[in-house]
């Protein structure tokens, strides 16, 4: 048995070396397929980042008129939560907190500090920071509550109109990207199917007689199938190594360019933190396609 395994691996390595043309062609198509899958994973990472960004961005700040009682504001807060139950977060920021935050943020700015001192009293208004769950409908609902409820007279101004445009813009961008992703995914699957078929075809043309002969001299199915499967594994591993290195290099090179478009998102950082997922996807896909195509080819010819 041990001898057999050794022989099967030996046959596989020999066949691999002797059919360099086919080996290289197979690795090439397999590499492209895996790169497409990898691309989709990168894309998913970027989309995930964008979504998170939007979720943080869609918020509304309601400033209350100076001198509004804290209890009144907290009532408004409860009201909003009651009317829009799955809202992500409503945070009360008092006059003093607003001043403290501002001072902390600009503590190095002497001019601003002086200006504040000259004003004398606290110029900030108490406010409610409302974070929606990135659903535009919910966003509209909250805006509506703030404008039309009985407590709207307590509100000095609502800060959302400027953001509205950006929010809608980001939404259209992400939905466009999603459509793009779906199209890419379809192309990807088509390519993958083509690759598998191509691999099968090449192998069939090459090994039909051979499998036949092995069968007629009484080789067991395992003995015949083994080398083809091991070859599939070899194709998968080599393609994986190539793809893994390529993804790392691409991520490194494109990282700075992507950061210009998406501030705060590091492509290479994404690669580094998720390296084991890359290994899993690329190795799994490579070996999977390699072995399954080998199985299909041999199965077809073993039936005599």
């Amino acid at each position: 048995m041990k001898n057999n395994t050794k022989r099967i691996i030996g046959f596989a390595i020999n066949d691999f070396n002797r059919n360099k043309g086919i080996s290289i062609a197979t690795i090439f198509v397999l590499t492209i397929t895996i790169m497409l899958v990898t691309g989709l994973f990168f894309f998913q990472g970027i989309a995930g980042y964008l979504t998170a960004q939007i979720q943080n961005k869609i918020d509304i700040t309601a400033y209350f008129v100076d001198g509004t009682q804290e209890q009144d504001i907290l009532n408004v807060k409860d009201e909003i939560i009651k009317m829009s139950p799955n809202i992500k977060n409503v945070e009360y920021v008092s006059k003093d907190q607003a001043l403290a935050t501002f001072s902390a943020k600009h503590k190095d700015d002497a001019v601003l500090g002086q200006a504040l001192q000259e004003v004398g009293n606290n110029p900030f208004l108490p406010s409610l920071n409302i974070t929606t769950n990135s659903d535009p409908a919910q966003y509209a609902q909250v805006a509506n509550i703030l404008q039309t409820s009985d407590f709207s007279k307590l509100i000095d101004k609502v800060d959302y109109s400027q953001k509205k445009d950006t929010i809608e813009e980001i939404y259209s961008i992400t939905s466009n990207i999603t459509i793009f992703g779906i199209i890419l995914g379809i192309i990807l699957i088509l390519v993958a199917i083509l690759v598998v078929f191509n691999t099968i075809k090449l192998a069939i043309e090459n090994s039909k007689e051979e499998i036949n002969t092995m069968k007629t001299v009484g080789a067991s199915n395992q003995f015949i199938r083994g080398p083809f499967i091991i070859q599939g594994v070899i194709y998968g591993i080599i393609s994986f190594v190539i793809c893994f290195l390529l993804s790392g290099i691409f991520a490194l090179i494109l990282s700075s360019k992507v950061e210009v478009i998406l501030p705060g998102f590091s492509l290479f950082g994404f690669f580094l933190t998720n390296w084991w997922i890359f290994v899993l996807i690329q190795l799994g896909f490579g070996i999977g396609v390699g072995v399954i195509s080998a199985l299909i080819v041999v199965k077809k010819h073993l039936e005599i």
Partner: peptide
Amino acid sequence: DPAKIQEIRRKIGCIYQDYKLLPKK
């Protein structure tokens, strides 16, 4: 069954008219 047939084939040394050599070996 197929395994038995393969066992029988191993017991027979066959010289085929069309040789049936393994081209890649």
